[in-house]
Design a protein around this nucleic acid. Sequence first.
RNA 1: GCGGAGUUAGCUCAGCGGUAGAGCAUCUCGCUUACACCGAGGGGGUCACAGGUUCGAAUCCUGUACUCCGCACCA
Length: 876
Amino acid sequence: MKEELAKRYEPAEFEQRIYQFWERGEYFTPVLDRDRPKFSIVIPPPNVTGRLHIGHALVNTLQDIVVRWKRMSGFNTLWLPGTDHAGIATQMVVDRELAKEGISRFDLGREKFVERIWQWKEQHAGLIKDQLTRLGSSADWTRERFTLDQGLSRAVRHVFVRLYEDGLIYRDLAMVNWCPFCRTAISDIEVEYRERNGKLWEIEYPVVGSDRRLKVATTRPETMLGDTAVAVHPDDERYKELIGGKVQLPITNRIVPIIADAILVDPQFGTGVVKVTPAHDKNDYESGLRHDLAQIQVIDETGKMTAAAGQPFEGMDRFEARKAVIRRLDDEGFLVSTKEYANAVGVHGKCDTDIEPMISRQWFVRIEPLAKPAIEAVRSGTVQIIPQSWEATYFNWMENIRDWTISRQLWWGHRIPAYYCENGHTIVTEVEPAKCPECGSTVITQDPDVLDTWFSSGLWPFSTMGWPDKTPDYEIFYPTDLLITAFDILFFWVARMIMMGLKFTGRAPFSQVYIHGLVRDEHGDKMSKTKGNVIDPLTVIDEAGADALRFTLAINNTGRDIPLGKSSIAGYSAFVNKIWNASRFALMHLDVELKNAGSIERDDLGTVERWILSRLNSATREVNRNLSIYRFDEASSTLYQFFWHEFCDWYLEMVKPVLLGRHGSDEDRGRTKRVLLEVLDRSLRLLHPFMPFVTEEIWQKLGGVEPSIMVAPYPIAEDILEDAEAERLMSGVQAMITTVRNARAERGFTPKDRFKLYVNVSNDREAAFFTTCSYLLNDLARLDATIVNQPIPEAAQHDVISGFPIGIVFPEKVITQEQIERTQREIEKSRKELAGLDTKLANDQFVRNAPPAVVQGAQARQIELRARLEKLEKNQ
RNA sequence: GCGGAGUUAGCUCAGCGGUAGAGCAUCUCGCUUACACCGAGGGGGUCACAGGUUCGAAUCCUGUACUCCGCACCA
């Protein structure tokens, strides 16, 4: 093992080489073995449009941690990667490309346009993989899927047809959310509401056959061109006698009825009179159905006014028409007032265009029958949502769910497998029919629309595994075990997968869902391009390495939002550097390879070795436990704490006197090296899921049996390694060293000044221990002698450390003000604590009710404090 | 309006019934042959507020005040 590590830690030197090494070794691909315990997980497919952002880095880091942990723990592990065709988003990207060439998709035509997107997709799909690769994702690329792949498309058609046959899909004329920019219908959850400062206009409608005018308020005056009624509340005394009467609409002069509608109108709100536009407002639409009102469409699918809007409005954009209508109303004296008004406007999240409610014929999924079992699955615990607080949100949404609009007037996506013959018959079938089964007509056209992207994503956990065929993958790896994703797609994706999985495979697609938070900047603000606080994961990887980024994300992942800033990445990058250097130091002294190092005989081990193995063991237990409950933060900080502050700060320092030949026999040296190798090996394996690259690079130099650390067994805690006695004694030694260092600093001595330390113990074993370990105290606390069980000179600085009375004897009596103050503070603190304990222990209730361990602890502490106070007071 | 979450050290957050923690920042000392992306040491909190339960509350309950996030409504 003469191969040394490079002097500097430079991740760019080896990360990509290591990844290629893994791929060549095919370590990401599981075996098709039904008998081995398996662990499977599917990636939340990023959009093919994709450039990965920090959120992707997070979700994929978390998945990779779990996947690597499971794989090392002996599970036959599959992480299935892939991408989503992302209907609207992708279409928009290509649209924009075309715009640069000065053409639109309509100039190109559907076929050419879709061809163009495929070209674009082929060029860009590899980017996602490259980026995930840079992160270290150990996904099985041989199984990479795309939602528009043939197999997945077949699954989509199959599902559509079955849902149709089961009466769960229907086509109907209804009011939907229409995006005039994208020219498609979208579902309710794709509408986002933005607070906006708009205006509220009050308009008067003259009552026919009377001098009265009814005052209505509106934020969308252009829709009045399509008004077909005004409504009041049936019990509203102000308007009661007008019900059944008529008003004459300004501008169009159309005569429309005054109706009574208790659902639509809140008499307390505004004037208590509502204009009714059944073709352009959801509530008005429903009111229109109740009262059999005409629906006059005045805005078309591109957001322009129709002929029905009349002149001069026809052809105007809806916002332009708004101004024109107001001007006209004002001119003609119907406009009463204009007020500033803040309200929430529904916009299409993808393009920020105001949604236009519009009546159109669309395909819908009848959702309630699917939602019920999906609610039950979570309620019964078949699917567990972690953290559990998200369950409430899930139930809230699922219980109020409405039918899902699945047709999209786009060109990029899964074409709806519905066909219409010339005689108006509808045929829904997986394969294009040659003739109409009802009338035999061969003049058949397919529905031009495509399906909502989430329709295919909803099938992802099983469509990617070959379903509806019973493939080996499907049989071995479905259902999956875990899904890791962000809360913002809980409804879009997670809920739909559960519904579809239950309906079509009879099983929930995963048993656990882990929901992570949003990555924010260091002050907790959302990252956004306009704020300029965006952190690009690839830049971070280039600068600090993937391991530092991964560890930073993991340790900050507490289950809530994750604050991420340059300084915190720098902090954990320092940690990776520390691992590198500590390993480099160890490797400089190690001369055996793991594979022929032989086993460790516990009986030969010294206290230091038992102690570090015991500490490592408890870290091992904590890491495994926390990973099993997805506490990535706790697992990583356990490793951070152990490796840096126990392994590096104490253990390596304690081992130096032996390794560097200042102390001990050759046999001691051999044993020390053996244990050092063991501890380093285990630490690297524990760290591997979090920082795969650096651990592999170092571990390769240890000469293990396995070809890669990623297939080496993950350490598990072993009771035999636990050693409470060693831990107690070593923490005593550590505390003594700290006390001496402290005293040195406070009295103004330099590191070169040497003192004597007296330690008193109560039994022979302890005496033997401190005698054996005196070299450690002398070395680390820079003493010239540690004297065990001799009377402590009065002139010494007295203290009681971990129950051991000690005394530090200085060459000359130097007492600084700083030191006096500190002693005083220590005494006061101890007195206060002791007083508290005294009252507590004098309290019968406490002694009787508190657990015995707590009472005993308090008593022990009381004794210790008394002894310590007595000694401390001597120092004054 | 309904639901959820938060309020702990200068900053960002853990802890969630038994002596107040971490990282970063800050201050002092030190380039000791793994690492100055370092080492040693220090300072810093009446755990938002008010009640209650308990022998004991940052931790459980109730209320108040802010903050954030969903969903619904908005003529």
